[in-house]
């Protein structure tokens, strides 16, 4: 038990150090791919912390990501605030937003929740565009910093590491145990004294926090921000696909989905851009029909069957 913990810790530290070295080895195109992958690692892992145990499929990542990017942009462009302050404000704002959404929807069945989050990014984008066009004047928003791709990459790595630490702590806490019980049987959870609504809301708020943070950090990469760019429903779906593809019942599961999927997605976007939607659909169907427990599930299954063979 103890030694397994230590081994996990060492592996994690080695992985983080290796990941931190990436900008020294790659630059240009491959660094930008690594950056995208790092962004999805943070987003998908954080998503899976909530959606894995509870089975509530959240499509709100795009909305929170957008809140992060947009607030940084408007704060820096319109109000002359510093990037760091706005990053903080954005993360807090998205956490509060997630809390409100959670309180309204997480008491109810999972279907209501998916539906509510499905159009959320689009709805907020409409609202923001409307406010911008009618009250603020539709100027473009500029995010001018002296961050390089490498800087952004390291910041994302920090967020991703924070997500992993958070997940590791949750898994060992009462909160994580409560979440596991809720995922098994919500009625039982209530009857052993778990405040199920609150537990779900807290975890959902954490996804809002991290997604907004990622959105805020990515903003300087675009330098010119408009609502259509940052409130992307597609991002929500990609996060879900990558997490499920990797497997949500292990902390490191989504990682296994993000890396191959980012590469494939990149290739498709370049070579056959008209087929991205079709490909998203195929990815969803593949997950449901062929890898319902993700790559982690496949791994464990092959390892398990080998174990059985060895035992018999």
């Amino acid at each position: 038990m103890k030694s397994a913990d230590i081994r996990a810790l060492v592996t994690a530290v080695v992985c983080i150090v290796l990941a931190a070295l990436v900008p020294f080895v790659f630059n240009g195109y491959w660094l930008s791919i690594a950056l995208t992958a790092m962004m999805y690692i943070a987003l998908s892992t954080s998503w899976a912390l909530f959606s894995g145990p509870t089975h509530y499929i959240s499509l709100a990542s795009g909305a929170f990501f957008g809140v992060g990017g947009y607030l940084v942009a408007t704060g820096m462009s319109d109000y002359n605030q510093s990037f760091w302050l706005m990053m903080f404000v954005a993360a807090i704002a998205a956490t509060v937003l997630a809390g409100l959404i959670g309180l309204a929807t997480l008491r109810l069945s999972g279907v209501y929740f998916v539906i509510f989050t499905l159009g959320l990014a689009e709805m907020i984008r409409n609202l923001v565009s409307w406010v911008q066009n009618n009250f603020l004047g539709s100027r473009g928003l500029y995010v001018l910093t002296d961050f390089t791709e490498a800087h952004i990459y390291w910041m994302l790595l920090t967020v991703a590491s924070a997500v992993f630490i958070f997940g590791w702590l949750v898994e060992r806490s009462r909160l994580g145990f409560a979440l596991k019980i809720i995922g098994n049987d919500e009625t039982v959870a209530r009857h052993v004294g778990i405040n199920t609504a609150w537990t779900k809301v807290v975890l959902f708020m954490s996804t809002g926090f991290f997604a907004a943070l990622v959105g805020a950090i990515i903003a300087p990469r675009y330098s010119y921000i408009e609502p259509n760019l940052v409130f992307s429903p597609e991002l929500s779906f990609l996060v879900v696909i990558m997490a499920l593809l990797g497997g949500t019942h292990r902390l490191w599961g989504p990682l296994l989905g993000v890396i191959p999927f980012t590469l494939i997605w990149e290739a498709i976007s370049i070579w056959i851009p008209n087929f991205t939607t079709l490909f998203l659909g195929i990815a969803f169907l593949t997950i449901v029909y062929f890898v319902p427990n993700g790559f982690v599930g496949l791994l464990e299954k092959t390892r398990g069957s080998r174990g059985v063979k060895a035992g018999s």
Partner: peptide
């Protein structure tokens, strides 16, 4: 439940994804 009412269910409700002892611990933590 926190006030001190505990129950079993007519149609037994266990937590299928957990080990036997974790099922019992579930009752002890909250």
């Amino acid at each position: 439940a926190r006030a001190g009412v505990a129950r079993t269910f007519q149609l037994v409700k266990v937590l299928p994804g957990l080990s036997t002892i974790d099922n019992v611990i579930a009752g002890a933590v909250f």
